[in-house]
Simulated assay, not measured.
Amino acid sequence: MSSYLLPGIIVLLVLILFTSFVTVQQGSIGVTTIFGKYNRILFPGLNFKIPIIEKVFKRISIQNRSVELEFQAITVDQANVYFKAMLLYSVLNQQEETIKNVAFKFMDERSFMQALVRTIEGSIRGFVATKKQSEVLGLRRDITEHVKQQIDQILEEWGFHLQDLQMNDITFDDAIMRSMAQVVASNNLKAAAENEGQALLITKTKAAEADGNAIKIAAEAERQAAQLRGQGVALFREEVAKGMTMAAKEMQQANLDTSVILFSMWTEAIKHFSENSKGNVIFLDGSSEGMDHTMKQLMSLNKLMDSKQHA
């Protein structure tokens, strides 16, 4: 009888021996139960467990996990907003209480994901419901921060930590998208018109400044030219006066009438007028009274010059 039982006993002992060891993969933590009650956690590597009565209830991954979300929200002005988001989360830490929460808070992974997705959707919908359609696109960062603040605390109670939340896409109904595109196009046209107007204003302002500077330069040049002409005329008059003085002295030494100088100057002036003037007619008083009047003026000028010379 014993010869028949011995092989069975040996096989049973071998089975018990093999079931007494369990391997936990790197990046995971095992949770064991005894008669359905939590017992302990198993870390990566080869672990010993009580044969038959101690069972591995669940293997929990402590690596980062990601999930993509798609859902809809409605703004305060009744516009539909469609979101596409990416959620990155992980187990909070490897402490025993944290692992127990992860293992026993939810019936299975599917229940946990459903609760997580619905919580995030509810948080975003509650936030968007207080905003207008025109504000949503500019509040992408605010929406993300709002969700992180609300969800992170809830996840920690479940034993998880929210690593990141990205709003990858925010869209509206086709009619709203077309109207938004028209608004953007009209704003771009308005900005282009304003820029063109500013450019034209700057161009005209610069042209006016250039004209003003040209006028100033021309005025300064004319002033300097007039000054030079005045100096030239003064020098010319000075030289004429010197010439007349010398001629008068020579005529006095020769006992000649100095009035001849004045008459000669008068005739030379008439000749200059006729040669260089742009007009066609020169009016001269050829009467004897006019000649007499002119000669008297020349004589008075001659006496004035003589008085200056003697002085």
Rank of each mutant, 00 (worst) to 15 (best):
V11H: 05
V11Q: 12
R140W: 12
S28I: 05
I99H: 00
E220S: 14
N47C: 05
L262C: 07
L6Y: 06
V240F: 04
N255Y: 12
A73S: 02
D152K: 03
K190N: 11
I62Q: 01
L228I: 07
R65I: 13
G122V: 13
S277L: 01
L235M: 02
I143M: 14
V136W: 05
A241H: 05
R141P: 03
T19P: 07
A192Q: 15
I124R: 07
A254L: 08
T267S: 09
A129H: 08
N168S: 06
M86V: 15
H272Q: 05
G27H: 00
H310D: 13
M291I: 15
L298Y: 05
I215E: 12
D292H: 12
L42E: 02
S2P: 10
G197H: 13
S259Y: 04
A254G: 10
F127C: 05
V24S: 08
A191F: 07
L256T: 11
L116A: 15
I124D: 04
Q227C: 07
V240P: 00
V11E: 09
G159D: 03
G159W: 08
F127E: 05
I62H: 00
M1E: 06
A234L: 10
D164E: 10
S20F: 00
N47T: 11
A218K: 08
A226D: 11
L12E: 02
S111L: 13
I154G: 07
H272F: 00
I120A: 10
N188D: 05
D169R: 13
K132S: 11
I215G: 06
K190Y: 08
Y38K: 03
A175F: 12
K37E: 11
N80I: 07
F106Q: 13
E96T: 11
D108R: 06
A129K: 11
I53Y: 07
V81N: 04
L46I: 14
Q133S: 07
P44F: 03
D164A: 09
S20V: 01
Q63M: 02
G8M: 09
V128N: 02
Q63C: 05
S186N: 12
I62M: 00
F172A: 04
N39L: 09
K148I: 01
S123Y: 15
Q182T: 15
K216P: 00
Q182H: 03
D257F: 12
T32I: 08
G212R: 13
A185R: 09
I217P: 05
M291E: 14
R141Y: 10
E275W: 01
V147F: 07
L13S: 14
I62C: 03
N64Q: 13
I151V: 15
V31Y: 10
V184W: 05
G197V: 05
N93P: 04
Q25N: 09
A226Y: 01
A73W: 02
G27T: 01
A254V: 03
G8L: 13
E121F: 07
I50V: 02
Q297M: 12
E250W: 01
Q94N: 11
T23G: 10
T33D: 01
L46G: 04
R141A: 13
I10K: 14
L228S: 09
E220W: 01
V128I: 09
I282E: 01
L87S: 12
D257Y: 04
M299Q: 04
G122T: 14
A269L: 03
S264A: 14
N188S: 08
E209N: 14
L6F: 06
Q149D: 15
G138P: 00
A129C: 04
I261L: 02
Q182C: 11
T294L: 12
